[in-house]
């Protein structure tokens, strides 16, 4: 086929593009399913009003929310070819630094004999299962959204989609989980999000090539 022949075929099929946020619908649907699942299966911790005044609880939710914003900002830019990413990947480090600061403050402010208890917390296993379970729907939605875009790095973009889904799930799960110590959050929450990121990378390699 000569290139001129291909152009004949392409020209007969002009792209009709409706501008608007329609492409984001799958991601929005995934997030809605996650919130619905949370509403049906989980409950906010009983002492939430009290917890909302504790620095550790606020730090936990703020770090997760910040991670979600940084991942979303980077993704939006990577989804379009030829667009510069700017400083967005560095924004991913902010929540990590924030948590790191919390860990240092905990270690400095509590006796070494307490560290183990804070690290293990009360329910690390729930954290490692509930966060990925909540993240499944928004991850699937993000992959469907990205398929309609044109990311040139399938595995990294898939991993970022996993970080976005995982950190959104972590914000929700954070309101039910009674472990607030930065030692716990930095270990188990990040591990749970990393699991979702790994799943996202695999999905990306499989579904985001074009």
């Amino acid at each position: 086929m000569r290139t001129e022949d291909l152009i004949n075929a392409l020209a007969a099929d002009p792209p009709a593009v409706r501008p608007g946020p329609g492409a984001l619908l799958p991601l929005a649907a995934g997030i809605a399913i996650m919130i619905l699942g949370y509403g049906i299966l989980l409950d906010a911790r009983p002492d939430i009003a009290e917890a909302a005044r504790s620095a550790a609880f606020i730090l936990k939710l703020a770090a997760a929310a910040l991670l979600a914003v940084a991942a979303a900002g980077t993704l939006v830019r990577l989804a379009r070819p030829g667009r510069s990413i700017g400083p967005w990947p560095y924004a991913l480090l902010l929540p990590i630094l924030l948590l790191g600061g919390g860990v240092v403050a905990t270690i400095a402010g509590t006796p070494a004999s307490d560290w183990g208890a804070r690290l293990v917390g009360t329910n690390a296993l729930a954290c490692l299962t509930v966060i990925p379970a909540l993240a499944a729907a928004p991850l699937a939605g993000a992959i469907v959204w990205l398929r309609s875009r044109a990311p040139t790095r399938p595995a990294s973009v898939g991993a970022l989609a996993g970080i976005l889904a995982g950190s959104l799930a972590a914000v929700l799960y954070g309101t039910t989980c009674i472990d607030d110590s930065p030692l716990f959050v930095a270990t188990w929450y990040l591990l749970a999000i990393a699991t979702v990121a790994a799943a996202g990378a695999l999905l990306g390699q499989r579904f985001l090539r074009w």
Partner: peptide, 12 residues
């Protein structure tokens, strides 16, 4: 050319 055609919506 084919990719430009199919991914036209991703041009801002």
């Amino acid at each position: 050319l084919l990719a430009i055609h199919l991914k036209a919506a991703t041009w801002d």
